[in-house]
Each structure stands twice: as C-alpha cells, then as structure tokens.
Design a binder for these strands. Structure first.
Lengths: 220, 220
DNA sequence: GTATGCGCTTGTGTATACATTAACGCATAA
DNA sequence: TTATGCGTTAATGTATACACAAGCGCATAC
C-alpha cells in the first residue's frame, strides 16, 4: 500500500476538506477534534497544520484552535498581483527556452480543451483546463521555487473561484490570450509572451476583485 | 520574561546558527542532537524544523536527519529572478501610493547610509543598509504576502552574500540605481520605479551568478 | 443591572515512550 | 576483490501523559 505517513494523510485530508468547503473559511477547529475525525493522534495533525499554516491555508492560534484562513477581496488582489508577475516571468523564460512544438503539446492540448469546454458552456471543464494551462506554463518556466510560490497562491485562487466561477462573464478573451501566449512561446518571443500574459492576468485580477467586492465577500 | 515558546526559540536559534555558518550548508543533524544542543525535547525541534523547511532553509529526510539546504549558483539565479519581479512590483506600487517625503524617510536614510558606508569602504555596513533599503521598499509596496515571499528569498541571498560580499566589485552603480528608484517613487512615476529597480536587480543577479559559477560554489 | 475577581475547565505546548523500518556492517559466496 | 543478503542499530513517526495558562462562568459587591 502507499508508503504514506499520517502527516501526509492529514495534509491531503485537510486540504480536501478545506477546498470542498467542509471546513469553511473562518471556522475554528480544535486539534483534538481534527485528530479524532482523521483517526490519528494530535501529533501528526499538529504537524500537518503547521505545514498548511506555512502555505497560508490555516492559522494556529493558541487556545482558539486551528482557523481556516478566510480570504478577502483585498487578499485576492494581493495574490493576483503576485501570480501576475511570476507567471509572466515564467512565460518569458519559457519563450527563451526555445521549446519544440512537442514540448509545448500540453499547452496546446489545454488550449484546445478550453475552447471545447467553452463551446458547450461547461465552465467546470473550462476551469480545469485553464488550471492545467497555467500549471504547465509555470513548469515550462523552469524555476522550482517560482513554481512552489505560484502553486501556493493558486490554491488560494481556487478557493475563491469555487464561489465566483458562475458569476463571471464568459472567458472568451481569455482563450484568445492563451493562444497568443502560446504562439509567442513557440516562436521564442519572450517580450510578447510576458506582456500578453501579464495583461491577461491583470484583467482577471480586476474582474475578480470587482466581483468579490460587489458581492461583499469580505471574508470568504 | 519573554512569552516565547520553545518552538520560537528553536526557530531563532536554528536560523542564527545557519546564517552564522555554525550549521554549514549540506550538513545533516539528527533531531535528538539538535534537541540536546538547544536544551529541549525533540517535539519543539521537529516543529521548528518543519517551519524552516517550509522556508527552504532545511530539508527533513527520513533517517538522514535535518539537512541544511545547500544553495547552488542555479538556485541563486532562481531566487534572484523571483526577487527581481516581486521587488519591482513593490516599487511600482509604492510609486502609485503617492507617499509623502516623510513616509519615504526610511528609504532616504538607507540611501544616505549606503553612500556613507561606501565612502569609508565599510562593506558590511553597506550590506546592512542595502538590506534595509530593500526591506523598506517592499514594505511600502503594501502586499503582505509579497513581503513574506520576498523575505524568504532574501534569507537565502543573505547566506550567499556572506561568502561573496568581499569578492564583488564596489557597488557604485547600485547606489545610483537606488537614488533613481527613490526619486521615481517620490514623484509617483511607477514605470520608472519599476523598470529601474528591475534592471538593478537583474544586474545584481548576473554579477552574483557569474561570481558563484566562477568560484564553483556549486553547493554553497 | 453592571462590574470585578476568583476558581474551574480545557486546549495547548512539551516531554517521553515505543513500534517501525531504513541504513549500515559484516559475513558469505562468487 | 566485489556483490549480495541478513541481522543489528538507531532515528524517526506517532501516541500518550502531563503541566501550564488562557478563557469562561459564576458569585459577589457596588
């Protein structure tokens, strides 16, 4: 069976519960309580919580329990600002790397999937493919630390997206942008790859923040 | 006395030992050993190590002990790339924030201190003031998450700088750059603040990476 | 009715005990 | 000599025990 420690199990389980909304943002949970729910002692739960705290998903406050970090509109603005810069750098680096068409296959597939999903109005499938595109883009940028930071930030975005996905306008421009970024990377044009992606993310940021503020999600 | 937990004590102590070179990069240390050295049990040491691991300062490998993460020239290139983007964003945001002269006092002081240190060839004082300038710049950018990411990255740079500070050319251009960034922020010119700082960091990156590669610090 | 203080409850921080299992050495064989 | 396998050692992962201190309620005084 999987050589998975209890700490690892706790981390995945807690993450899943957080993303599923089973542990709602802002809610507090005692270590003992979570330990019991996960069928293990407090020790691995504590260690798991410590890791999730480092990623900003929870906060441990003495005697108040483990709080699921709420994410406000302001937080989301911060997060998108970071994502914008780092992903754009990755796009530029990917362009500089002179990848072959084969190397970019995953990107191309993700774009196709987004188009297909949009054609049949399947927003969930679109979001999944969009995630895939961005993950692959960052991977191609070949900066392990950057990938880690971005993935932490993206986790936070995912939490907000669950709520806002069905409120926002159709992501039509989005697919257009992705295609331009892809082509710039393919022909090695770092500047265009960078700037296009930068504008793309910034637009997403503005849209999302406006949405969150409008709907008063001040502590999602 | 200070209401400081053993975990907090362990974190500071370990950080200090790492930065002082007392725990050299690449070295392994058993939990028991560190616990004894710090005068506490394994539990708080483990929790401290977990936190430092999240910041990339150590790696915990089953049965091999806690390893002080080595930093190669390639790592340093990654780190500087991230610093470059995020600090430049902070500079732009700071410019947009329309700070008063008084708000920028810390920046101005840091610049003066750098000039003074350079005039008497005190590289250590220069490095300290340089750190101060960059920390303040990021603070003015008003993005808490960005500040955290940057501070993690800067910790890594500090480790390399201890070694390379006395090899590199006099940072004369550096002071010039800082002044331009400061003035751009003061007059609210986000574009110049961003671009100047970006170029500044990129130059530093290239210099440092070349230095590290030349001296074969492939696992500092 | 409101404020103040005391004691109790209970969650956490830390120490400790213990089972598991990976790594190392040694012996044996090719 | 080198490779392979077994047994021992010992470091970790996890459970558990316990002391301390923060928060809560209740009682008492104003």
């Amino acid at each position: 069976m999987g050589a998975m420690s209890n700490v690892e199990r706790a981390v995945s389980a807690l993450r899943q519960m957080i993303f599923a909304g089973e542990l709602p943002p802002g809610s507090d949970h005692l270590e003992t309580e979570l330990a019991e729910k996960l069928g293990m002692s407090r020790t691995p739960v504590r260690e798991a919580a410590l890791m999730l705290q480092a990623q900003g998903l929870v906060e441990m406050r003495p005697r108040r329990g483990i709080r699921i970090t709420p994410v406000s509109a302001d937080d989301m603005a911060e997060i998108y600002d970071i994502l914008t810069e780092l992903e754009s750098l990755a796009a530029a680096r990917a362009a500089e790397a002179q990848y072959s068409k084969a190397d970019l296959a995953n990107l191309a597939t993700a774009i196709r999937d987004m188009d297909a999903a949009l054609a049949v109005d399947d927003l969930r499938a679109w979001a999944e493919a969009d995630d895939r595109f961005h993950r692959e883009l960052v991977r191609l940028g070949r900066n392990a630390r950057l990938s880690m930071v971005v993935s932490v930030m993206r986790d936070q975005v995912r939490r907000a997206r669950a709520t806002t996905l069905f409120m926002r306008p159709k992501p039509k421009q989005s697919n257009e942008d992705h295609r331009v970024v892809y082509q710039a990377i393919a022909r090695g044009d770092a500047q265009v790859a960078h700037d296009t992606h930068h504008a793309h993310r910034q637009a997403a940021r503005d849209m999302l923040v406006a949405l969150l503020e409008k709907h008063q999600f001040h502590g999602l």
